[in-house]
Amino acid sequence: MIPNRKALVCIGLLVITGTVQAATFINACPFVITSPGDYLLAANLMCGGGDGITINTGNVRLALEGHTITAGVGAKRAIVASKQFGVLQNVRILGPGLITNSGANAFSAGVFLDFVVNAEMSGITVLGALGGIVTGDSSNLTITANTLWQNNVGISLGDAVPRFRKMTSAVTAQVFFTKISAPR
């Protein structure tokens, strides 16, 4: 009985501290991920009128679970990991899963990473996009076992200088301070 009681106490503490978190199911797009955690695609999606799934926080695991994301009218990017200021860390985007065009509708990018450090993309098939997997200003990436087919560019890797955005933000703050100080 004592070991069982200990186990129950441990589980209780994990739940109280928030260590045990249920996955979030994604059934529609657009969908914006703003909290760390596990996210599972629970249906095939038709995404138009902008980006499909946007990740703008770190420590996210997104699994496509064998589903398809299809470009609708006005589609931009199927999956984006980026935020306005700073750098995202620890993002995993996992297949199996298919990102595809439909007729004249195509994604500008299947998976797009911007200012991301420590990311994994694996097991994803991208078909008929402008860019299959596109990264910019990102580093420590693992891109493995994906299939890029009939896109304009299969994989495009840009600069690996994620610290650039931090420098830009600091300069902006300095200019703002100067403007506030000027009337004194």
Binding site: L148, W149, L157
Partner: peptide
């Protein structure tokens, strides 16, 4: 960064 075992055809 590592890019490996992808099929890009």
């Amino acid at each position: 960064s590592t890019v490996s075992h992808n099929v890009i055809n």
